[in-house]
Computed example of a mutant assay.
Amino acid sequence: MTTERMEHPPVQGRLSSDDLIELLGAPLYEEVVAHVQNSGYPEPHARRQVLECLRYLYLVSRYRDQLAGLFLPVEQHVDEVWHYLILQTREYRALCEERLPGRVLIEHRSIAYGDYQQEQPGRERTVEEALRWIPLYCREFGPFDDGALPHWTIVRFLHERMDLSLPEISALSPLSTG
C-alpha cells in the first residue's frame, strides 16, 4: 500500500481489514492479537477487537476537526488495545505520525461513559455526537455488521435497546446543527 493511497482513500471510501493491518504492520498486528488472546478472548474476537481499535484511531486521525472533543464510545476492551499500542511507543508514534491520515500523535484520555454522560448536557447532545461519527465510520469502512456490536457502545445500544437494524444504523445521517 502506498502512502498516497492512504491519504486519498478510494472513491467508495472503504478501507479493508487488510488496509488497516498494513497501516499497523502485520507483525505488530499479530503481536497485539496474541496479547488480546492472552487476556482471555478467542482469536476471532481478538482480531476484530484490534481492527475496531484501528478503525477508531483512523477516524480520530482523519476527522480531527469533526470529531475533536467528542466521546467516541468504544468498549473498554478496545480502549485496552489502544493502551497496549501506546506502550509500543516507537511503533505507535510511527502509526500516528507517518501512516494515519492526520499525521499527528493521537493522545489518550480515558473517561468512563457514565462520567461522560454526567459532564454533557444530555441525551440530545449524545445523539448528535453519535450521529457525527457513525456516518464517517460507514463511509470509511462500510456498514456495521454483527462483528462490530461488541466493540461500539452506541451501535449496540441503538441495535439492542432502540431496535434499529444494522442497515438502519449504517444509514443514519448527521443531524444538522444550527
Rank of each mutant, 00 (worst) to 15 (best):
C53D: 14
F71N: 11
Y56V: 01
P73T: 14
A94N: 05
R93E: 13
L59T: 02
H83S: 02
S61Q: 04
G69H: 02
A94S: 10
Q49L: 15
A94W: 01
R47N: 00
V78P: 10
Y92R: 09
Q49H: 07
R93N: 14
H77I: 00
R90Q: 14
Q66W: 00
L67V: 03
V50Y: 06
H83Y: 02
G69I: 05
L67A: 07
R93C: 05
L57N: 00
T89M: 08
L72V: 14
H83A: 04
E91S: 09
A68V: 06
T89N: 12
L57C: 02
R62I: 04
R64P: 01
D65E: 10
R48A: 15
Q88W: 00
D79M: 05
C53P: 12
V60K: 13
L87E: 13
R62T: 08
R48E: 11
V78N: 08
R62K: 10
L85K: 10
D65M: 03
L59N: 02
H83E: 13
Y56N: 07
E52S: 12
L51C: 13
H77S: 00
Y63Q: 04
R48M: 12
Q76E: 15
I86N: 05
W82P: 03
Q66L: 10
D79L: 08
V81L: 00
R55Q: 15
Y58H: 11
P73A: 15
A68N: 12
D65A: 10
L54V: 02
L85W: 03
L72E: 03
L72A: 06
H83C: 02
L57P: 06
V74H: 12
R90T: 14
L95I: 07
L95G: 11
D79Y: 14
Y58R: 02
E75W: 04
V60S: 08
Q88E: 00
V60R: 10
H83D: 15
Q66C: 06
Y92G: 07
L95H: 10
L67W: 09
F71T: 02
G69C: 05
R64E: 14
Q66G: 03
E91V: 04
A94T: 14
Q49W: 05
Q76M: 08
L70N: 06
V74L: 11
I86A: 12
A94G: 00
R64H: 14
L72H: 04
Q76L: 06
L72I: 15
V81F: 00
A94P: 04
V78K: 06
Q76V: 06
V81N: 02
Y92E: 11
